[in-house]
């Protein structure tokens, strides 16, 4: 099996309530949104500082809908499953790589990323031409060494794919609602009804320096 590895300095992410009607409109027909509460699905916003990859260093923002994982007898059960519907990066090479290899939908411009760590919090600001698009703040909890498996679903035309992803790094997660998300009107966020996305997270995650490992993509 061909394994693809990405070394990162930080990966911060958080889960936010969003309208299930938006989630269903975004997801392909074969995927269902996972509801945290009745009619409230889950928007995952993740930001990576990649330091080592086939395409060098780059920063990345992923917006995804959380879906049920695909259960396969005898295989590790993932912690969660995602359908990324918008990915933005800081370099053209990283976009070309991810589109070609993983069929991830991208915003096709180099964006500016600012990772500001202060007093146990990381604030990530993603901007274009000095106009902020996404402002994500995540707070830390205790860090423990972890290897967390995830499923990532993508599509290309009528073809459906799944890739197993492992996050191998010191990991912190909590539900203290200390973080924040500000989404600005922009073509990257136009698929979301912004008033329906909660500004406070139901879950905050932080991976310190570690490795993200992708197995080979499977057609499902």
């Amino acid at each position: 099996m061909v394994i693809t590895r990405y070394g990162f300095e930080n990966c911060v992410g958080a889960f936010f309530e969003m309208a299930t009607s938006d989630a269903r409109a975004i997801l392909p027909a074969h995927l269902e949104p996972l509801e945290a509460m009745h009619t409230r699905s889950v928007l995952a916003v993740l930001a990576f500082q990649f330091t080592e990859s086939e395409v060098g260093e780059y920063d990345e923002l992923v917006m995804a809908i959380i879906t049920p994982p695909r259960v396969e007898p005898g295989k590790p059960l993932p912690k969660a499953a995602f359908y990324p519907f918008m990915v933005a990066t800081s370099t053209e090479a990283s976009r070309e790589h991810a589109i070609e290899r993983w069929h991830l939908p991208h915003y096709m411009a180099d964006l500016d990323f600012d990772f500001a760590e202060n007093d146990g919090k990381m604030k990530v600001t993603v901007s274009e031409s000095d106009q902020p698009i996404v402002e994500l703040t995540v707070s830390e909890h205790d860090f423990n060494p972890t290897v967390n498996p995830y499923h990532c679903f993508t599509i290309e035309g009528d073809d459906r794919f799944k890739v197993n992803i492992f996050m191998n790094a010191p990991h912190s997660e909590h539900d203290e609602e200390e973080g924040e998300l500000i989404l600005h009107p922009h073509s990257m966020t136009e698929m979301l009804t912004l008033d329906e996305v909660s500004s406070y997270p139901m879950r905050e995650e932080w991976y310190r320096a570690g490795v993200q490992t992708f197995e080979e993509m499977e057609t499902i």
């Binding site: 074969h30 995927l31 269902e32 996972l34 879906t67 049920p68 695909r70 259960v71 007898p73 499953a81």
Partner: peptide, 14 residues
């Protein structure tokens, strides 16, 4: 609680 696939019993074994 959730799990996609074709068998309604898919989650029983895990």
């Amino acid at each position: 609680y959730f799990g996609s696939g074709e068998d309604a019993f898919a989650l029983l074994e895990p």
